[in-house]
């Protein structure tokens, strides 16, 4: 009888503590947009000109959930990207500055915001690509990475038109390519 009395609460605890989310997802598509960072966070912009000081590229990713168990999102057990980013190349159709003529890799000039200014990463991958939502304020509502903000931190010498091309290669070799709209950066 004592054993039964002991086992029942344990079973209740196990059932009620179903636990945190165990989520796995992968990216299956990408769209590149110009973005304006003159507000608290970058937002997509359709403007045809923008200050180069607050220019950003917003990559909108189509995140496909592969598996899910548990009930609650938890930053300690964030979703696992089954096919993470391996390399990123950003180019432009136009000369960026003297040392970056049209077509050269501009990745060194950008950082990945990673939803947090304390956790931003060089876009060239020199510190890896630990891209996550755990630092985002809306993690509990959106825990899979479905957007990446690339902030321009080295401005061109002079105002110029730019159109950026994104080459986004995943670990399994899958490549996504897209381009931003042409924009005048002043």
């Amino acid at each position: 009888m004592k054993k039964i009395l002991l086992i029942i609460p344990i079973i209740i605890c196990i059932i009620s503590c179903e636990g945190d989310y165990d989520v796995s997802y992968e990216w299956i598509g990408l769209k590149a947009h110009n973005a304006d960072n003159s507000n608290m966070w970058p937002v997509k912009s359709s403007a045809d000109s923008m200050s180069m000081s607050t220019f950003a590229i917003k990559l909108v990713l189509d995140a496909d959930e592969i598996s899910r168990s548990g009930r609650y999102p938890d930053t300690e057990t964030p979703p696992i990207n089954a096919n993470p980013l391996d390399s990123l190349v950003i180019t432009s159709d136009f000369d960026f500055d003297v040392s970056h003529p049209a077509g050269t890799n501009l990745t060194d000039l950008f950082v990945i915001l990673n939803d947090n200014y304390f956790r931003s990463l060089p876009a060239n991958g020199s510190e890896g690509y630990f891209i996550t939502k755990i630092y985002a304020n809306d993690f509990n509502d959106q825990y899979n990475v479905d957007e990446i903000d690339l902030l321009l931190i080295n401005n061109p010498d002079f105002p110029s038109f730019q159109q950026f091309h994104i080459y986004f290669r995943l670990s399994d070799g899958t490549v996504f390519k897209d381009s931003t709209e042409i924009i005048y950066l002043y």
Partner: peptide, 15 residues
Amino acid sequence: YKYGIRENTANQSII
């Protein structure tokens, strides 16, 4: 603790 400040005319923040 830490905090960051970013001017609304720049992408760079100071930590």
